[in-house]
């Protein structure tokens, strides 16, 4: 479904601030894969997401979705295939527009926008049904401006908007990080539900190790612009936070040793 080949990108090349954000990254996702991505700040997780969404382009390498090369496709064209939820609950919705209008915009993601009314009667009923699955009572507030909703409600709506048109790929960029623990749990559960319901191919960045272990069938760990660990299937199920940290120490330790060898 998603294929990233030899992706490298460097920011501010040739200056003191040069940063190799991604180095020879290869990633392949089968249809229905749910991959969680962990790693420290600056590891390249967000850059990886932006490479897929198209808001950044690689220096070298290619990205293809559904066997179609999308490397040079601009973001707005690529988003026909991609649903995305951002970390900031304010980022995924239009605050001065109503809930139904926001859903209508999301509904048009993989269609051509026309001069027909966006919120038709028929669609309203569909939107209502979808909102009911969130169990937040939003189905009774179709005409409320989204800016009036709480952070948790907005993020739940963003999640629904990104998923109900069944995108080929769903990108979740630390989408629970800005919420309080109980809201974060709610969104985490909702995420599991919708991904299962639609069988979405998903990539989720998170700082919460437990979340990375609970969700998904694959896990990758990134560091310094590289994928340093990949776990999947049964192995992932038996993984614990402790093991993960040990593994990280082991790989990082080795890397430091080899660095020392080079420098020594």
């Amino acid at each position: 479904m998603l294929n990233m080949k030899d992706i490298s990108v460097t920011f501010n090349e040739g200056t003191l601030d040069e940063k190799k954000a991604l180095q020879n990254v290869n990633l392949h996702l089968e249809k229905g894969d749910f991959v969680t991505v962990i790693g420290s700040n600056g590891a390249g997780k967000s850059t990886l997401m932006n490479m897929i969404s198209g808001s950044l382009k690689p220096d070298i390498g290619s990205v293809s979705i559904n066997n179609k090369d999308v490397t040079i496709l601009p973001e707005y064209k690529r988003s026909r295939y991609i649903g995305r939820v951002f970390q900031d609950p304010m980022a995924g919705t239009a605050p001065t527009m109503t809930i139904e209008e926001n859903l209508a915009m999301a509904y048009a993601r993989n269609k051509k926008r026309t001069l027909k009314i966006g919120v038709s009667k028929k669609r309203k009923a569909t939107f209502k049904n979808h909102l009911e699955t969130l169990h937040l009572g939003l189905e009774n507030r179709l005409n409320a401006k989204v800016g009036l909703l709480s952070g948790g409600e907005r993020q739940a709506l963003s999640l629904l908007m990104a998923t109900f048109t069944e995108p080929n790929i769903l990108l979740l960029d630390e989408h629970t990080a800005a919420l309080d623990p109980s809201r974060a749990e709610l969104i985490t559960n909702l995420t599991g539900e919708v991904v299962n319901q639609f069988g979405l191919t998903t990539l989720m960045v998170t700082h919460n190790m437990q979340q990375a272990l609970d969700l998904g069938n694959r896990l990758i760990m990134m560091d310094k612009g590289q994928i340093i660990l990949e776990v999947s299937g049964e192995e992932k199920k038996s993984l614990t936070i402790e093991k993960l940290l040990q593994e990280f120490q082991r790989i990082r330790g080795q890397q430091m040793d080899s660095d020392r060898a080079v420098l020594g």
Binding site: S53, S79, R80, F86, A91, G92, A94, M105, A106, A108
Partner: peptide, 9 residues
């Protein structure tokens, strides 16, 4: 919200 609507193609 320009970023948002761009993510909806």
């Amino acid at each position: 919200n320009e970023k948002m609507i761009r993510s909806f193609s």
